[in-house]
Design a protein around this nucleic acid. Structure first.
Lengths: 222, 222
DNA sequence: AGGGAAGTCTTACGGCCGTTCGAATTTGGC
DNA sequence: GCCAAATTCGAACGGCCGTAAGACTTCCCT
């Protein structure tokens, strides 16, 4: 890398990415292993061996195995929420008044579905997030339960798009929609690949997004 | 218990229930602990302590901790599938030709939602099944992936009800519907209880079933 | 009453786990 | 080139885990 490239990168990339290489090696290896095998089934020794670093690195750089899991969860959640919020914001700008239901749901579902593309940089991150959501620590589950500010933006938008619905209606239908999304575990990724023989995998994800959007939008229409 | 009661019970209840009391104590305690805390977070010592039996009981009666998990999974899955199949059968009898989509989906969703009722005998079993589905052993996941004969009955019925849809359409919409169902984890049970203040919990589950049915049916209408 | 099978109990083995400590090494400012 | 701070390293500690072996008890059938 040339010095100019380094300089440009260091201004764009967040601080965490420019820290000690070891910390990042641990972060990336842990994310992958947690996503593939689950938190409880991956030991600190597995992580440090995969990362090619010393056993003590996890505790030195992150404090504990639990704290490592939480930091990965926090960063990836923030990234995903940022993309969703951006799409929702763009939908607001595109429409006078309130965006239609479909565009709100698209802002919610498109970012994670994009991450799901087989060659996407964040594919493993989404698998990690889905796993962490159900298998994570109590701390993670508490964050998911208490910090609903992000989802509120979407439920509020949906309420504006469908003022005839009660808040309870919107809440449950949003919950159902997220259930459709979060159920996309490994078995389904495989199924996705099986169904895709012959097609480009890219278009498969697009087709899946279209299916989900159509199903959820119809669910909201009722 | 009177002898007559015992005799009557022993003819109705399946053999497993009349076996050594210890085996059942282990089975029930393990199911509860697995459902509440997850497979990896519950030790054999936790189970035997909760059941009030000896440590060696798990390995004596079930062979191993993994085998115990699998046996619970197998029995509860069979029970749930039996109820679903029965409802689907009744729907077939009720209608000449093919039952409408809503009745097919009702046969799929009503049994687990019934189990979800706060005072239902199988409430903890459903929580166990939902957990085992995502956190279980490789063996369990293989069963879920390979043994699709049960779900085939429903996809076939849906195809008959909606011959205009392609098998892929039916498969994905069925998958989405199950995602809605399987996403009903603990956080949502709590949410269910919070929303229910003042009402009977019984009617809450009925209301949730109605919401899910309406959403899924609309998704299939599209 | 006796004897064999079935079940229960105590105890402990081997192993992997997360974490820690002190020494060795590298890094960065002067 | 030097010193202090930051990082890496090897090694080990205490602990909990699943499982097994063997002695002991209970039950049932003849």
């Amino acid at each position: 890398m040339s010095p100019t490239t380094d300089a440009a990168a260091s201004t764009e990339v967040e601080a965490a990415e420019t820290e000690a290489a070891t910390k990042n090696l641990v972060f990336v290896a842990a994310e992958r292993l947690f996503a593939l095998h689950g938190f409880q089934n991956v030991s600190v020794r597995d992580i440090t061996a995969a990362a090619g670093v010393n056993l003590a690195s996890v505790n030195y750089h992150f404090g504990s195995k639990d704290a490592l899991l939480f930091e990965i969860f926090r960063r990836r959640t923030a990234e995903l929420n940022r993309e969703r919020a951006k799409m929702l914001h763009e939908a607001n700008d595109r429409n006078t008044g309130s965006p239609p239901v479909r565009e709100i749901l698209a802002a919610l579902l498109t970012p994670p579905l994009r991450w799901l593309a087989p060659d996407h940089e964040r594919r493993i991150s989404l698998q990690f997030l889905i796993r962490a959501r159900s298998e994570g620590t109590d701390e993670i589950r508490n964050v998911l339960k208490t910090d609903v500010s992000h989802l509120r933006r979407f439920s509020d938008a949906l309420l504006r798009a469908r003022p005839d619905l009660s808040p309870e209606d919107v809440y449950w239908r949003l919950h159902f929609t997220l259930g459709m999304l979060h159920n996309n575990r490994f078995a389904e990724f495989d199924r996705l690949n099986v169904l895709s023989e012959g097609q480009t995998s890219e278009s498969d994800v697009v087709a899946l997004l279209e299916r989900m959007l159509a199903f959820a939008e119809a669910g909201f229409k009722g």
